[in-house]
Amino acid sequence: MSVTQILFWFLSFLAIGGAVMVVASRSPVNSILFLIITFFAISGHYILLNAQFLAIVNIIVYAGAIMVLFLFVVMLMNLNAETEPPHKSKYLMYAGVITGSSLLLLVVAALRKSESIQQMTQLKDGDVGLLKNLGRALFTDYVFPFEISSVLFLSAMIGAVVISKRDKEVHS
């Protein structure tokens, strides 16, 4: 077993374990922390998959900014294990777990016959994931999506403003 394979398995278990704990842990803060662990593991995978830039972005944007935002909101609301609403009724929980896992089974079963799933992915090799290449593509081929995603941010910004701003007059 090569190092990459060991790394792959380690990161995979880390990611899955983190993800399970996100769902399972009672305290929202813990959930967030476990989610961050999962994100780190995924970033590790990115590096393995030769997507170095994405790995960094994932850590900075997701694990960093976004998760901090979550944490901030949770702290703001002072949510903890006690304030956490109890789990849904047992049946609903079982139903959720069963349906969720059957989805996994179904997708895997659906792909079982596929030939392409035996294809290999190249690990730890190549330079497509470097900032230089991505940057060039982003600002040439992908300039339109890049520009237009600004609309997305603008609307998110306006949205945040609209929702957070207190109205001057009271409406019924």
Binding site: T4, Q5, F8, S12, A15, I16, A19, V20, V22, V23, T38, H45, L92, M93, A95, G96, V97, T99, G100, S101, L103, L104, V107, V108, L111, S116, I117, Q118, Q119, M120, T121, L123
Partner: peptide
């Protein structure tokens, strides 16, 4: 690594996400 490992990993994460939502 064969791609199916990654597929299973992703779908697993995806399913855990769904279970969480549920």
């Amino acid at each position: 690594m064969p791609i199916n490992y990654y597929i299973v990993l992703s779908v697993a994460l995806f399913s855990i996400g769904i279970i969480g939502v549920l």
